[in-house]
């Protein structure tokens, strides 16, 4: 998979900008994009599991329990779920670290561009996954940290996808994904036409609610980026 252009308007929003980027900000975003694109090494892995609802959450047939009420309602009406792990790769992190030394503004912009790129990689990965996994209906992505789904499940999700070995995606003891521009997510799928609601995460159950730049500026990301910076 390759990314040839990054959504600069999205990156601008991650930075706390409103409207469209212009002037020096836009020029610099383009400059950063030029540096970042060759540093992206998009990789992803996924596995499909049967699911069953328990008292505490949703059980994956891989033996992992997704705890919480929100994941139950998100996967309501689904028989199976896709667990996917996505990363933009190590080089993007290194580039950002280097820029932090020489040009802080470029570092901040590249950081947000890399978040936007991770989002695009997720979209692309989803398209590729669902050209193989045939299903009538699917939910949006739901990630650890959304609502009451704990981050503590990260190591298990990575293990289910053998993500460490297959795409070089790790998690620290403090449950941060490394490389930093990475996403894990759960997508419910169903062969029946789904009746349940809740396939969009609202700000109400988002972990980033209090300090979200997009929300502060009157917007909403859909379910896109609660674990991004």
């Amino acid at each position: 998979m390759t990314i040839t252009e990054i959504d600069k308007a999205e990156a601008y929003r991650y930075m706390g900008g409103r409207g469209e980027p212009d002037g020096e900000v836009y020029r610099k975003l383009c400059e950063c994009e030029k540096m970042l694109l060759p540093a992206l090494t998009p990789r992803y892995r996924y596995e499909v599991f049967d699911i069953s609802v328990t008292d505490d959450g949703v059980m994956l047939s891989g033996g992992v329990l997704l705890k919480g009420k929100d994941i139950i309602s998100h996967l309501d009406g689904c028989e199976r779920a896709v667990v996917m792990c996505v990363t933009a790769g190590q080089k993007a992190d290194t580039l950002i670290r280097t820029l932090e030394i020489s040009d802080m503004a470029a570092a901040a912009m590249t950081d947000c561009l890399a978040s936007a790129a991770a989002e695009q990689i997720c979209e692309k990965a989803e398209r590729e996954i669902f050209s193989v996994v045939k299903t009538k209906y699917r939910t949006t992505r739901f990630s650890p940290g959304y609502g009451d789904l704990p981050l503590a499940v990260q190591p298990q999700l990575l293990k289910l996808c053998d993500a460490e070995r297959k795409i070089g995606l790790h998690v620290t003891d403090t449950l941060l994904l490394t490389p930093r521009k990475s996403v894990t997510a759960i997508i419910g799928i169903s062969d029946k036409v789904k009746s349940g609601a809740a396939d969009v995460v609202s700000c109400d159950n988002c972990a980033a609610r209090e300090n979200c730049m997009i929300r502060k500026n009157g917007g909403c990301c859909g379910n896109k980026k609660a674990d991004k910076q």
Binding site: Y12, M15, G16, G17, E24, M104, M109, M213
Partner: peptide, 14 residues
């Protein structure tokens, strides 16, 4: 005052 945003602030600071 919300006349400019964080990206512009960072650029100016740099």
């Amino acid at each position: 005052r919300g006349k400019i945003f964080l990206p512009q602030l960072i650029l100016s600071a740099s």
